[in-house]
């Protein structure tokens, strides 16, 4: 059952990611806004989700496989991020690659922490 939930959630998340990338096309050698946007918002949302779930005992069994593994896992992506860093570097845009890497990794970790904190603060 968990695998089915992850698959369906992953499809929903991937569709959303595709929608964002279609709305924010990257120019050749340009800054990959679409991937950065999905990864940062996805990190923020998983922080909120985990913060909310931590206050629920027991947590509904479907939430982790569907929302965390599926929707948010499918919405965010490492593969596009990694290849974008490589492609920027290969194209000689080393500063852009480094900035994009830092913004994604540091921003992602901070976004998770911010989401967690917001959800915990909102809890009675």
């Amino acid at each position: 059952m968990a695998y089915l939930l992850a698959a369906v959630g992953g499809a929903v998340g991937a569709l959303a990611r595709w929608g964002v990338s279609a709305a924010l096309p990257v120019r050749d050698g340009g800054w990959p806004w679409a991937t950065l946007l999905v990864n940062l918002t996805g990190c923020l949302l998983i922080g909120v989700l985990l913060g909310v779930l931590a206050g629920r005992s027991p947590e509904p069994a479907w939430t982790r496989p569907f929302l965390a593994v599926g929707v948010l896992g499918g919405y965010t992506t490492w593969s596009a991020f990694a290849v974008e860093v490589v492609a920027l570097t290969d194209a000689g845009a080393v500063a852009a690659a480094a900035g994009y890497l830092l913004a994604s990794v540091l921003g992602g970790v901070l976004a998770v922490a911010a989401g967690l904190r917001a959800a915990r603060r909102g809890r009675p």
Binding site: V38, N39, G42, C43, L45, I46, G47, L50, A68, V69, L72, G73, G74, Y75, T76, T77, W78, S79, F81, A82, S104, G108, V109, A111, V112
Partner: peptide, 8 residues
Amino acid sequence: TTFSTLGA
């Protein structure tokens, strides 16, 4: 692949 689970 995923970025959200990595961050979490």
